[in-house]
């Protein structure tokens, strides 16, 4: 970490890798969902084609500065979340800037993009955008409750908020993973994970049948392109975060891919076999069992 430019180069390299991983992951998930429906589904490279398509749209309508900044905030949120986490523990070039940020910063970045996006989408003037935002923010907020409790429990367990130190404490075999050493916090965290991964039953705010695609109703062309690119970053960054917090992190890229893919499949499989919750049901669900589990996890380390 002595040379700033080397760090920057490594950060770009890992961003490039994670972007492609996220895009392919999206394609594979489309395919899996289609197979569960009994369909063939789009090819796995379809997210790339979609991205080129939206970037190649010749006209774009902006509704003002905040509308323009919405996708930028969203993109910054995704990249910020990714860049302040160690991706591969012990690797020189997949460390990112994890030395300069801790868990609180990462949690802030999860919310940051959503808030920026909310301001942008609201400026579009479309009545469905604020409705989608309201639902989206309510969903994110309520799933952050058990997540925050799980994080507090982890911080109490390890006596630190640094992700790198939490990952370091879990090295040396599966018995050291937080999944085993702190199962209650893991349970609360994984229930929050379902709410954060934007799959059913907690994706009402993005459901095309409800309000046309939620907050991005008015976003199109390049704006939408940035959001799609961000989705690749954001999804993989969240997977890496949960892998680091509860499942021992990764010491090399195959382990990283294996663990994050398995984690994502948990959310996808829960999603394909469950119908959507309405927002009210979703909030009720989150403030009952997951929040109670989170509180128990915190209490275990208080006494």
């Amino acid at each position: 970490m002595d040379n700033f430019w080397t760090t920057l180069l490594y950060a770009f390299l890992s961003m490039f890798l994670i972007f492609n991983y996220g895009m392919l992951l999206g394609g594979v998930v489309y395919k899996i969902i289609a197979r569960v429906h009994g369909r063939f589904g789009p090819p796995v490279w379809q997210p790339y084609v979609n991205l080129v398509k939206v970037m190649g749209v010749r006209t774009a309508i902006s509704h003002g500065i905040m509308f323009w900044l919405g996708p930028v905030f969203r993109f910054a949120g995704g990249i910020g979340l990714f860049l302040f986490m160690p991706v591969v523990f012990g690797s020189v070039w997949m460390q990112n800037f994890s030395f300069s940020g801790d868990l609180l910063l990462v949690i802030y970045f999860i919310f940051f993009g959503q808030l920026g996006m909310a301001l942008g989408a609201a400026e579009s003037g479309h009545p469905y955008s604020p409705m989608g935002i309201m639902r989206g923010l309510a969903q994110v907020t309520v799933s952050e409750v058990p997540f925050a409790l799980a994080v507090i429990a982890l911080a109490a367990q390890h006596g630190t908020l640094s992700i790198t130190e939490i990952v370091a404490a879990q090295q040396g075999g599966i018995a050291n993973w937080n999944m085993i050493t702190n199962p209650v916090a893991t349970l609360a965290g994984m229930m929050a994970f379902l709410g954060m991964m934007m799959h059913a039953p907690f994706n009402l705010h993005l459901a095309p049948q409800e309000i046309p695609v939620g907050p991005p109703t008015e976003y199109h062309s390049n704006f939408l392109g940035y959001m799609q690119a961000n989705r690749a970053f954001f999804a993989s960054a969240k997977l890496i975060l949960f892998m680091n917090l509860f499942f021992g992190g990764a010491t090399n890229i195959p382990v990283l891919v294996g663990k994050t893919f398995t984690l994502y499949m948990f959310a996808v499989f829960v999603g394909v076999v469950n119908p959507r919750f309405t927002l009210e049901n979703s909030i009720r669900w989150f403030i009952r069992i997951p929040t109670a589990t989170g509180i128990i996890a915190v209490l275990l380390y208080t006494f």
């Binding site: 289609a34 369909r39 789009p42 084609v49 309508i61 976003y219």
Partner: peptide
């Protein structure tokens, strides 16, 4: 959109908003 015809395999998807559709 259903399993019998499945246009998603041709890269065709329904979008609910005119801004995003082509």
């Amino acid at each position: 959109y259903t399993a019998r015809y499945d246009i998603s395999r041709y890269g065709i998807a329904p979008r609910p908003t005119p801004r995003q559709s082509n």
